[in-house]
């Protein structure tokens, strides 16, 4: 079975994002970019399935500008066998991403798509569900445990108030939650080897998908700042202030 792993290039999670002065978005020029952390977890899970003999090939795919090649090289350094870049300079939303991924799935015919539950830039949490819908495949979102047996995948899902377990007939889409696994680091020899692994580039425009967004960003602004607080010295002072000043207890 082949596993397809979509990965997104995003502003590194350690960087505090800065809103562009013209309110058009968040500054990304000259900012450190990395693979979306949830995608690393999804990739790690695919690699583990391969190591258990349940998958025979792991293919990473990213959609974006030419520079998104760097996250695909990272994916191959972690262990993906090959990579596909769907190249576009357009700003694309999950609706478009899921359409483009559907075209890749139809070409590659994977038995499983393993992806992150959300990207830490747009915080949408939608692409996996949308892709599953477009393919008519079942979905296992917010996965914290994945077990494959007899043409099915059993997925433990992180839900409000507990864990729900579902069984899905393959092929299926799963989206990784934080607790699914601890992604490995790419070693230096593997980073070198990844340079020689195949990376195919496909023009997004050639896939016959309309890239026009339905959700227009009107403006992006800083959230309102909180007023600076005070430091209290004793517990009694804290309780007193919560009672009489803040009136919350």
């Amino acid at each position: 079975m082949k596993v397809l792993v979509p990965v997104k290039r995003v502003v590194d999670y350690n960087i505090k994002p800065r809103v562009a002065a013209d309110g058009s978005g968040v500054e990304t020029q000259g900012v450190k970019m990395s693979m979306n952390p949830f995608d690393e977890i999804a990739l790690e899970e695919a690699l583990r399935l391969r190591e258990k003999g349940q998958a025979d090939e792991v293919v990473a795919v990213s959609i974006g500008p030419q520079v998104a090649q760097d996250v695909l090289r990272t994916a191959m350094a972690m262990g993906a066998d090959r990579a596909i870049l769907i190249q576009t300079d357009a700003e694309i939303e999950p609706r478009v991403v899921s359409s483009l991924l559907k075209a890749v799935v139809e070409k590659e015919q994977p038995g499983l798509v393993s992806m992150g539950k959300q990207a830490i830039d747009d915080d949408m949490n939608a692409t996996g569900q949308m892709l599953a819908a477009r393919l008519g495949w079942p979905q296992g979102t917010f996965a914290s445990k994945v077990e494959i047996a007899d043409g099915k995948v059993e997925v433990a899902r992180e839900v409000d108030g507990g864990t729900e377990t579902v069984s899905l007939t393959l092929p299926a889409v799963i989206t990784a939650d934080l607790r699914l696994n601890e992604p490995r680091y790419a070693s230096l020899p593997n980073i070198m080897k990844a340079r020689k692994k195949p990376l195919e580039t496909i023009e997004a425009a050639s896939l016959g998908v309309d890239l026009t967004p339905r959700l227009k960003i009107v403006s992006v602004a800083e959230p309102p700042e909180r007023k600076a607080g005070v430091i209290v010295e004793t517990v009694d002072e804290l309780v007193e202030k919560l009672k009489t000043e803040a009136k919350v207890i």
């Binding site: 994002p17 830039d121 747009d122 959700l215 227009k216 960003i217 403006s219 992006v220 602004a221 800083e222």
Partner: peptide
């Protein structure tokens, strides 16, 4: 967006 570090106004 960005973990609440920015607020986007969007039009559908």
């Amino acid at each position: 967006i960005y973990a609440g570090n920015a607020l986007a106004t969007v039009q559908s």
